[in-house]
């Protein structure tokens, strides 16, 4: 039987209350959202928090809405809600691509976007998704809010910019015209973590790639931002040849390790193919030409 080590449990009734508890309890305290990454780690004693602060009652952290030129997603929004949201699918279809293949529908009833990002596991699909669309994380502490770009949010494996006494409250994505996006993943079987995954977002203006975001999941210690590929693509007219070149950069710039999901050369191959496919599909969507 797998049982977590003992801890104290409390239920937050407000964001302010959760933050106050985090500050009072210090480094031994941890937030529990869906619990679908944290509880498995606690059962294996890889995580041994002394206090759990349950934020599941904080309905005010569960929403997807358009606010001015941004789309805001509350940290407690569950996978199932991201999957079903028409608003999100219209602006950023890569969320639905990803949600269809994140774990299984039963797990998706519990897991949250906040938990996925704060877990900072390179295989979390939403980390690559949020990097590609250039999302920003809203972190709140007793002193107020700060907003951090995805490139600064994930500091290392299982480490984020969320400090002691702080929590993630919202994910914000800038809304820009001419956009298209896609997420591609290869897994061993239904419901499994990625062997490799690629997220891409493009913004097309006057037949050229005005801006682009590409990120890889599961092929390095953290989510990989493909900045060299982005530089190559920016300002050019989209073409399959160009996307294949970006794929070659993906294969070179990732750093997978060999494990039960496959050897290194296979993962590099996937990084290349999936990057090319994601860019191609994102562009077709931006141009409303998706097959």
């Amino acid at each position: 039987m797998q049982t977590p080590a003992s801890f104290e449990y409390e239920r937050a009734t407000s964001v302010e209350g959760a933050i106050a508890s985090l500050q009072r309890l210090g480094s031994g305290a941890r937030i529990i959202a869906g619990g679908h990454s944290l509880l498995p780690m606690m059962k294996l004693r890889l995580a041994n928090p002394e206090h759990l602060i349950d934020i599941n009652d904080l309905a005010e952290l569960s929403y997807i809405r358009e606010q001015g030129d941004e789309l805001s997603i509350g940290a407690l929004t569950r996978h199932v809600e991201l999957e079903k949201s028409e608003l999100l699918a219209r602006h950023f279809p890569l969320f639905r691509d990803a949600e269809n293949v994140i774990a299984d529908p039963v797990v998706r009833n519990r897991g949250t976007i906040g938990g996925s990002l704060c877990q900072a596991d390179a295989a979390e699909d939403l980390s690559a998704v949020c990097s590609a669309v250039k999302a920003k994380a809203v972190i709140r502490g007793a002193g107020g809010e700060r907003v951090v770009g995805m490139e600064d949010f994930h500091i290392g494996p299982y480490v984020t910019a969320v400090g002691e006494g702080e929590m993630l409250t919202e994910v914000r994505i800038p809304l820009r015209p001419g956009g298209g996006s896609a997420h591609e993943k290869v897994e061993r079987r239904a419901g499994d973590w990625a062997i490799a995954a690629a997220s891409a977002a493009v913004w097309i203006e006057g037949g050229k790639i005005a801006d682009v975001g590409v990120a890889l999941g599961a092929v390095g210690p953290t989510t990989i931002h493909l900045s060299r590929a982005e530089e190559l693509l920016r300002g050019k007219a989209p073409s399959e040849g160009l996307f294949a070149q970006a794929g070659e950069i993906a294969s070179a710039d990732c750093s997978p390790s060999a494990d039960g999901r496959g050897p290194i050369d296979y993962k590099r191959h996937l990084a290349s193919v999936l990057t090319t496919r994601a860019l191609s599909r994102a562009t077709a969507r931006a141009l409303h030409q998706e097959a």
Partner: peptide, 23 residues
């Protein structure tokens, strides 16, 4: 016991959930 098999699924407010992965 690892959230994979689904034998433990119950409904919580009408939604299926894995009861081995909820306190």
């Amino acid at each position: 016991d690892t959230s994979n098999c689904g034998a433990c699924v119950v409904q919580m407010d009408g939604q299926p959930v894995k009861s081995c992965t909820i306190l």
